[in-house]
Design a binder for these strands. Sequence first.
DNA 1: CGGGACTCCTGAGGGC
DNA 2: TGCCCTCAGGAGTCCC
Length: 290
Amino acid sequence: MPELPEVEVVKRSLERKIQNLDIKKVIINETNLRYRINPNDFSKLKGLKIKKITRRSKFLLFHFKNSIIMLAHLGMTGKFFFVSQNNRKSKTSFYYNLNEKKDNIHNRVIFHFKGRQKLIYNDVRKFGFLKFYNEKNYNNSLHLKRLGPEPLSKNFNFKYFKHYIKNKNRPVKNLLMDQTFISGLGNIYANEILFSSKIKPIRKAKNLKDLEIKRMLKITKNVLKKSIMEGGSSVKNFSSLNGKKGSFQQKFNVYGKQGKNCSNADCKKRIIKIKISNRATFFCPACQKY
DNA sequence: CGGGACTCCTGAGGGC
DNA sequence: TGCCCTCAGGAGTCCC
């Protein structure tokens, strides 16, 4: 799933390519994404340049001329591709084997630029969306206004964390996935952060000790930074294009590893899988005992 | 108001 | 081989 590091990587690689290109036309193959597409929004883009792309949490913001902002969310399976003149598809996003012919079925929106380049929004499951705002109102949008701090910002700190968890009976894993507490984590990183922090996913948030909070803060930031540097953990090894499922999972310590040996060398236990709030949760019963 | 349950969607994978 | 079932889950909405 695209989480903060993957979205950040997409942002960086896309921006280099499409900044200052002029939109010639936009072809919409599917209007029924997470939110129904209004083709009029896209026809207004004709002749406009993309000034810049920014990221907030897992959202991408395309800043066009005329103060138009397109808010994009990749959902589960959303991907952007940039296709240049030589027609070589440039992967800016991840995960699936891009057997191109077959995958073209899922090209939902295609932005054509002057000069024959294209930006393709591809999304198998249609959980993602493209929605329009302007420079004045986007921050108050339904999607952005309630978001918690960026994990890598200094606003995500001990004081904030400690204050927030007071009286919170929820499992700490739910807390990590709660976008109003911290924005940008999803199921994979929540599982991995708890493993590295040696904290049991069902632990009640309010019972976390100060030292554990400090450990989690540090690990959260480190895991995300490292993953961005490596091009997004879940993208790792994907560039070979073989799309073998195991190739991206091998980076993980617990996610999808139920029944496998714990990756800590001195631990003999196997990773187990449970459900928390109906979400798959993986942990080592020995390393994450409390 | 907090938080759990449900919902959208399609393809992969397992069982028989 | 093919059919059917379950699972994957971000995040908005509903409801207790």
